[in-house]
Amino acid sequence: MQEFDHIQSLWQSHSVEIKISSDEMLQQAKKEVNAIRNKSLFNIIGMLVSFVAIIILWLFFDFNSWTTHAGLTIFLSAIAVSTFMLYKSHKLIAQHDFTTNPNEFLNSLKSYQLSRYSLYSKMYWIYAIALSLGITLYFFEILSYFDLWAQCLIIVFTFGWIVFCSTLVRKAVMKKEKERIGLLIEKFERIGNQFKEQI
C-alpha cells in the first residue's frame, strides 16, 4: 500500500506541460475568428434578405386592412433594429486585426461577447414580442382567406415555432457561442502571455 501511495504522490507531483508555439496558436485562432466573423456576416445578410422580402411582399400584394400594414411595419422595425444590433456586434470583431495587436483584439472580443449576451438575453425578447405582435396583426386579414382548420394549423405552427426558437434554439445557440468565444478569449490571453514571456 505504501508503494501505491508513493507512486500516486510521484504521479501527482509530475505535471506535463504541453507547449504550443504562439504561431500555431495564432493559426488556430485565425480560423476560429474567421468562422465567427463569417457567421456574424451571414446573420446580417439573412436579416437583410428577410427585410427586403417583406418589403417586396408589402409592395406587390394589395392589403386592405390597417392591421396588416401595422403588423408589417412592426415586423420591419423589429428586423431593422435587430440587424443594426448585429452590425454593431460584427464591427467589434471586424475592425481589429488580431495579428497586429492581439491585446486590442482581445478587448474587442470581450466586448463582442458582452454584446452577443445582451442580444440573446434582453434584445431577443423585445424582438420576439415585436415579431409576435406583428404576426398577430398581419394574421387578422391574411387568415380570413383560409378555412378554419388551416387557420388553426397556421397559428399553432407559427407561434409554436416562435416558442421553440425562443427557448430551445436560443439557449443552445447562447451556450455554444459562449463556449466558443470563451475558448477564443482564453487562447488570446495565452498568446499575449507567451509574447510577454518572449520579451
Rank of each mutant, 00 (worst) to 15 (best):
E179C: 02
N107A: 07
L26S: 06
G160H: 07
S77D: 05
I79E: 06
E189F: 02
Y112G: 00
K39W: 12
K88D: 04
Q12F: 05
L137M: 14
F60Y: 12
M174P: 07
F164R: 12
Q151P: 09
L114A: 10
F139Y: 14
D23E: 07
A78I: 05
S15Q: 08
F195G: 02
R170H: 15
I191E: 01
Y127C: 14
M1C: 06
F195I: 15
V49Y: 11
S65H: 10
M123D: 14
S40M: 07
Q113N: 05
K88E: 03
A29D: 00
Y127A: 12
W149E: 10
W58T: 11
A70K: 07
K110Q: 03
M1F: 07
F195H: 08
W149G: 10
I142V: 12
W161Q: 11
A29R: 00
H14I: 01
I44V: 08
E197W: 02
S89K: 02
V52L: 14
F159Q: 08
M47C: 11
V16N: 04
E141F: 13
S111C: 02
K178L: 00
T68Y: 09
F51T: 09
F140L: 12
F75M: 13
K31V: 05
K39L: 13
G134M: 08
M85V: 11
L153Q: 11
M174A: 13
T167D: 12
E179P: 00
E17H: 13
F195T: 04
S144Y: 08
I55W: 04
I55C: 11
H90V: 01
